[in-house]
């Protein structure tokens, strides 16, 4: 893939590759080319008692180019290398530029010999909470998370609901006050507020 493409050009290039709307795509292959047999098993034995070396958790305390400097909640310092092949999630798939000082983070990748974590995926401010919905307003829901009040902001066009394991929908009107739910969302740092990505609930 041409490295000099801007994001929009890159999207056009990849769209053409998968939908085959152009014959000029070079190097694109289809179905089966990355079958399991072609890939080394990424599961190296990890001692469950020890911190996972290929994982990092903490808050961003510095950004040096594309290197994230992260202080773990246990005080351990991590250097996390982000590349154009690293997925970045912050409420939705986004770009590295959205990472800010103070963001909470989970990252998975490969720990290099110099201690840097070469990240495959970075999730910024992601939270997964079992809650009770205690009240609702026009663009938010009030949640009880183990006795702590959390404000869940509904983000138009992004927030989705999964009712009784059925496919996710944008319709939130089946949510009820008093019901329990699981919320995947993005924490707003140093507040008790989250932007809601997906809420899992029952529709009964």
């Amino acid at each position: 893939m041409p490295a000099e493409l801007d994001p929009l050009g890159r999207r056009r290039f990849l769209t053409a590759a998968v939908l085959g709307t152009t014959a000029t795509v070079a190097g694109a292959t289809v179905l089966g080319s990355i079958g399991p047999e072609a890939v080394a098993d990424p599961a190296t034995p990890i001692d469950p008692d020890a911190p996972d070396p290929n994982f990092a958790e903490g808050r961003i305390t510095g950004i040096d180019g594309t290197l994230l400097l992260v202080t773990g909640s246990d005080g351990v310092f991590h250097r996390i290398q982000v590349t154009n092949a690293t997925s970045v999630w912050k409420l939705r798939p986004t770009v590295f530029g959205d990472a800010k000082l103070g963001d909470g983070l989970y990252a998975r990748g490969v720990r290099l010999a110099d201690g840097v974590l070469a990240a495959d995926a970075v999730w910024l401010n992601i939270v997964n909470m079992t809650v009770h919905i205690t009240a609702m307003a026009r663009d938010r829901m009030y949640l009880d998370h183990h006795g702590h009040r959390v404000v869940g902001h509904v983000v138009s066009g992004t927030t989705a609901a999964v009712y009784n394991s059925t496919p996710a929908v944008a319709d939130l009107s089946l949510l009820r006050v008093g019901q329990h739910a699981r919320v995947i969302g993005a924490w707003r740092p140093d507040t008790n507020e989250v932007d809601v990505a997906t809420v899992y609930a029952s529709a009964a």
Partner: peptide
């Protein structure tokens, strides 16, 4: 275990050894 955000009151779990960064 030690954590940020809404998790910061989670504690080390019923066994007292739980940590987000380990395979628990």
């Amino acid at each position: 275990g030690n954590a940020w955000g809404p998790c910061d009151t989670a504690g080390h779990g019923a066994c007292g050894t739980c940590n987000s960064g380990s395979r628990h």
